[in-house]
Amino acid sequence: MNSTNFSPSSPKYFADTHYGLFNLHPSCSVIEIRRAYRELSKLYHPDTTNLPLEEAKQKFHQLNEAYGVLANPESRSIYDLQIGYSRWNVIQTPYDFSVLEDEKDGMRSAYLDATDRPLSSGELFALLLMFGTIVGCMLLAITIAWLRTSAI
């Protein structure tokens, strides 16, 4: 059982909320909400349950309504405020910068962003050529303009 799920011994402060319907704590992730919704929707779907049809429809409707609110970040934050839960008081684990996406492939980089790195010698040479071309074109244009005006 996940750490965000309610344990049977803990008090269920949010038992009568959408979170209680999924048996989750309000600090749970969207993935945990989706997982709980899928499990419970299989359990309460009118076509697959052993419950009476009206009770199954009612439970399935409640599940869909709760999932619609909790799956959307904006409506979830509004709902959290309505039930008196604040995410500001939840301690978040800091991001671990030592684990980069590139390390999954075995590549290590001292830079956090791929665009934040020094230019290679080939890139510096290309920039030098572009700068030389621009300066050469400007000098050529100025020379041609000066020769045409002096010929008049």
Rank of each mutant, 00 (worst) to 15 (best):
D113V: 04
V30N: 15
L112D: 05
V99F: 00
S98H: 08
D105K: 13
Y79L: 04
Y95R: 12
K42Y: 03
M107L: 13
Y111Q: 10
I83E: 12
T48D: 06
W88S: 15
P52V: 02
L63P: 13
G106E: 02
Y79W: 01
R35V: 05
L53I: 07
A71W: 13
Y44V: 03
Y37T: 00
P26W: 03
I78P: 15
A15P: 13
M107N: 12
D47K: 06
S109Y: 00
P26S: 06
L24M: 07
A66Y: 04
S109D: 00
K42R: 05
Q82R: 08
D80T: 10
I78W: 11
Y19V: 11
I33Y: 03
I91N: 13
D113M: 11
A71V: 12
Y19I: 02
V69L: 14
R34H: 04
P94Q: 07
K59N: 10
I31S: 10
C28E: 04
W88C: 15
I83P: 15
I83C: 10
A71T: 14
D96Q: 06
E55I: 06
T17F: 09
N50D: 06
Y44M: 02
D80A: 08
G20I: 05
S77G: 05
F14D: 10
Y44H: 05
V99Q: 01
P46A: 00
S27W: 02
N89P: 15
E74I: 01
N50M: 09
F60N: 09
D96C: 04
R108A: 11
H45Y: 01
Q62E: 07
L70G: 08
Y85L: 12
Y67D: 01
K59E: 02
H45S: 02
L43Y: 04
K104P: 13
A71R: 14
K57M: 05
N50L: 03
P26N: 04
A56W: 00
S77A: 06
A110C: 13
R38L: 10
A56Q: 03
Q62G: 13
S27Y: 01
F60W: 00
Y19N: 08
K57F: 00
F14C: 14
I83S: 10
T48N: 09
W88T: 15
F60S: 02
E54Y: 09
E103T: 15
R38Y: 07
G84A: 09
L112Q: 02
C28N: 05
L53T: 14
T17V: 11
